[in-house]
């Protein structure tokens, strides 16, 4: 046990401290928390669906949980079921074989719900495009609120996308 504690102390706090002003990350963190408090009562629950991705975007979604980005520290967490998710992150071009599963996952979410299409494939179909096997972009299958391009998008870009999704929802709610 003492080795674990020593290692934790040696590592220190890795979470990137938001600078005082004019820094996108800090703005992101603060605005996220404000928005979440207002709309989701302090917790945003995200459900992820890989609809046919190459697994690259998944690696960056995993990175969101590392101590540097510490997404959970902002009150945003990934949940195991669409039934209690506020936001759906969808990666990949939607393969024909995942089309029904994606539609059912979307249908299972309670209103209000947000959809963020992740990566070049989610935004445009990417290198896989539309074909006998691929429906292409996510919006060809379910309504999309926000599209975050990148191959794969960086964790910071993903955080920004999540924030933008929440702001958008506020605007729509008026």
């Amino acid at each position: 046990m003492h080795k674990i504690i020593r290692q934790i102390l040696r590592s220190g706090i890795k979470t990137e401290t938001p600078p005082e002003s004019n820094d996108a990350l800090r703005c992101t963190a603060q605005r996220l928390q404000d928005e979440i408090l207002r709309r989701f009562g302090g917790a945003l629950a995200i459900r992820h669906v890989d609809a046919g991705s190459c697994n690259g975007c998944e690696l960056e979604i995993h990175a969101l949980s590392n101590p540097y980005y510490n997404l959970e520290g902002l009150g945003i967490h990934f949940v195991a079921s669409p039934r209690h998710a506020d936001m759906l992150l969808v990666t990949g071009p939607v393969s024909r074989h995942m089309e029904t599963a994606l539609q059912r996952t979307y249908a299972a979410m309670p209103e209000p719900k947000l959809v963020v299409a992740i990566g070049d494939c989610g935004c445009t179909g990417g290198v896989f495009g539309e074909s006998y096997a691929s429906c292409g972009r996510v919006s060809n299958v379910i309504p999309v609120d926000i599209a975050v391009p990148g191959c794969p998008p960086s964790p910071s870009a993903l955080m920004q996308g999540i924030l933008t999704g929440i702001s958008n929802a506020q605007g729509l709610a008026k």
Partner: peptide, 28 residues
């Protein structure tokens, strides 16, 4: 479930253009 027609896509490509797709067969 993630079958997206990769092998068919390669058949419309040149040796040069196929490199990008090859790098996206399995992202990890």
């Amino acid at each position: 479930y993630t079958h997206k027609g990769v092998e068919k896509l390669f058949e419309a490509m040149t040796l040069e253009s196929g490199a990008r797709l090859a790098g996206r067969i399995s992202g990890d």
